[in-house]
Design a protein around this nucleic acid. Structure first.
Length: 639
RNA sequence: GCUCACGUAGCUCAGUAGGUAGAGCACUUCCUUGGUAAGGAAGAGGUCACCAGUUCGAUCCUGGUCGUGAGCUCCA
């Protein structure tokens, strides 16, 4: 065979014999240190196993263990190994479906009559370890689609046959390790011994191909890393996330509750949570006032006819609560605030001179969610949107978007979120509005993002049917992403409600409408905040800033005086005058994550001072009550 | 909604070859007046989620309902 020219990215090419395997090529091209980290290579579009022969010259892009892709390869292989273990353990009456790598691990779906139990974990894990110890090579074979269909049909693997029927290519690949054979594009690790750090995480049901009309399969989730330390880090992070779970902290800190009395997905804000929410709302309102918004209030129900006009009955009924009859008229609990704001817009004729009109509302909406979807504060049936609608001229669109992004990032920053993923969603298949408008609006969103210098990803076709949108997913302190902010251009509602304004030409035109929410849902955002701060809120939004702790009953009167003085100075303060030891009181205040403990004993009483213990356990120098109040005021200022 | 698991005092959890229950914390009272993460004692508190069935008898077994969790689906 002839020679071919191969090189790795950025290096000089070498002449090597055609038909050489990837492993041999890598050996020839890379240092031994580099070589150890390589698990596959990318040649053009394709990822290649180490064992694949190279017949054409070109540039090989190394896929290393420390890359995302390299990790995905390991995890994908891990799913095959787990499937092998399961098939070997639970016999021939089990069918395998699919087993890809995911964001933080992998899964494999099985069709098996008996449910897996946590006890099976042990068995599967130890079987996996045996397979790993056996260092079985992953071998790749290619065959025609027809051959593959025949092969899997004979094995009774009907899911694989179905997959094959949907594949268009005439040649497919299968991978074999030991006696386990799976339809797979690859690539895979060289042999099973590379799987050194793995763990089964959980069992769950999953529909075949995500379709609830099709059979429910059993999905085993696991995760894998090249390095045991990485696995430990991941498991520790899961542990940490569990500690921060807003449902757990919400209960412990008495922030919110969900009661059987009231119903699932409906949030009861307890005094401390309600206070934190008020502080968030006040901040939000102030910030909006400063940015030229006007505040609105609108009701929770409206005539069903309105929802017919708005189009919600056509495209949103499944997410709405059932209607109610009032004096023979049908009313509807609101799933969105927009039509109400339109009701206010339509109170009189509007002039272009008024634009942009910026109206905001903390509007509580109700959406029907299937019981299985509900989750703490994160997914509920009644929630408050920090909503706003901006009515503007086409030429104002870009600047308005820019201003919204600006305000958005500013507010997120105040809550400690400075990292985000930004997505621009473009026109979906089903849409309303003219192509020209879509293009203009998408362009305006894009320009605003670029002017702001925000890196973003385009989500083609993911826009809402009525207009393109920007979504901002914030990253919390554990690096988890939460979708909160959304900015959407709407061509639909102005048309449906026949909105107009008189332009310079004294003719009627249709305004552009922007919907946007920054925190998204106050409930969910609060949930994210609880987890982000692990319940230890910053001073400005913590419900209790300080707690007065007296040492003995001898200081009861002084403690009361200090407490009153702080309260009058605007400090959110509590007074713990119970007949308990200081240690005990400190422990409780600490667990309640109160930023400052104000300790008053005889020493303080005699000198008219307080000793302040911080949440981090450090003591401040004794100071006057006035000085402490001033310190709190200073530190509570939002920058 | 679907699959699996779970549902015992305010909270965290024990428990019972099926004979109507227990701990720690919290709560109340008393003793103690103690300087930086739990002082001691006593008391009160539960139709063991709800409804049916099996049984002489069910918190425990069976079925259903409701709720919770993990996913699927969906999304603020």
């Amino acid at each position: 065979m002839a020679d071919i020219q191969l090189s790795t990215a950025g290096e000089e090419s070498k002449t090597l014999p055609a038909g050489i395997t990837v492993a041999e090529a890598v050996k020839a091209l890379c240092s031994s240190k580099e070589r150890k980290k390589v698990v596959a290579v990318r040649a053009g579009e394709r990822l290649l196993d180490m064992s694949e022969p190279l017949t054409e010259g070109g540039v090989l892009e190394l896929v290393t263990k420390d890359s995302r892709e390299g990790l995905n390869i390991l995890r994908h292989s891990a799913s095959h190994i787990m499937a092998q273990a399961v098939v070997e353990l639970y016999g021939p009456d089990i069918k395998v479906a699919i087993g890809p790598a995911t964001e933080d691990g992998f899964y494999y779906d099985f069709d098996r009559k008996e449910p897996f139990t946590p006890d099976d974990f042990e068995a599967v894990e130890s079987r996996v370890r045996e397979i790993v110890a056996a260092a079985l090579p992953f071998s790749r074979e290619t065959l025609s689609r027809a051959e593959a269909i025949k092969f899997f049909q004979e094995k009774g693997e009907s899911y694989k046959v179905e997959l094959l029927n949907d594949i268009e290519a005439e040649t497919v690949s299968i991978y074999r390790q030991g006696d386990f054979v799976d339809l797979c594009r690859g690539p895979h690790i060289v042999n099973t011994s590379l799987l050194q750090a793995f763990k089964l995480i959980r069992i769950a049901g999953a529909y075949w191909r995500g379709d609830e009309k099709r059979p429910m399969l059993q999905r085993l989730y696991g995760t894998a890393f090249y390095d045991a330390k990485e696995l430990k880090k991941y498991l520790d992070q899961l542990e940490e996330a569990k500690k921060r779970d807003h449902r757990k902290l919400g209960k412990e800190l008495e922030l919110f509750t969900i009661s059987d009395l009231v119903g699932p997905g409906l949030i009861l804000w307890q005094p401390k949570g309600a206070l934190a929410r008020r502080l968030i709302e006040d901040y939000w309102k102030d910030e909006h006032y400063r940015n030229g918004y006007e505040l609105l209030y609108t009701p929770h129900i409206a005539k069903r006819d309105m929802w017919a006009t708005s189009g919600h009955l056509d495209f949103y009924v499944n997410d709405m609560f059932s209607p109610m009859e009032v004096e023979d008229v049908s009313y509807q609990l609101k799933p969105m605030n927009c039509p109400f704001h339109i009701g206010i817009y339509k109170t009189r004729k509007r002039s272009y001179r008024e634009f942009p009109i910026r109206w905001c509302e903390l509007g509580t909406v109700y959406r029907f969610e299937r019981t299985g979807a509900l989750q703490g504060l994160m997914r509920v049936r009644g929630f408050t949107q920090d909503d706003a609608h901006i009515f503007c001229l086409p030429e104002q669109l870009e600047e308005e978007i820019f201003n919204i992004i600006d305000l958005n990032l500013h507010i997120l920053k105040t809550f400690g979120f400075t990292e985000y993923d930004v997505y621009l969603s473009t026109r979906p298949e089903k849409y309303v509005g003219s192509d020209e408008n879509w293009q203009k609006a998408t362009e305006a969103l894009k320009m605003a993002l670029e002017k702001k210098g925000l890196p973003y990803q385009v989500d083609p076709g993911e826009g809402v049917f009525y207009g393109p949108k920007i979504d901002i997913k914030i990253k919390d302190v554990l690096g988890r992403a939460w979708q909160c902010s959304t900015i959407q251009v709407d061509f639909n509602l102005p048309e449906r409600f026949q909105l107009g304004y008189t332009a310079e030409d004294s003719k009627e035109h249709q305004p552009i409408m922007i919907h946007r929410a920054l925190m998204g849902s106050l409930e969910r955002f609060f949930g994210v905040l609880i987890e982000h701060y692990a319940g230890a809120f910053p001073l400005w939004m913590t419900p209790v800033q300080a707690k007065v702790l007296n040492i003995t009953d001898a200081q009861l009167d002084y403690a009361e005086k200090v407490f009153q003085q702080l309260r009058m100075a605007g400090v959110r303060v509590e007074n713990d005058t119970r007949n308990e030891k200081l240690n005990y009181k400190i422990r409780e205040a600490q667990l309640a994550k109160i930023p400052y403990m104000v300790i008053v004993g005889d020493k303080e009483k005699d000198t008219d001072t307080v000793t302040v213990r911080q949440r981090d356990g450090k003591n401040l120098e004794p100071m006057s009550v006035a000085a402490f109040a001033e310190m709190i005021r200073e530190q509570s200022r939002i920058r």
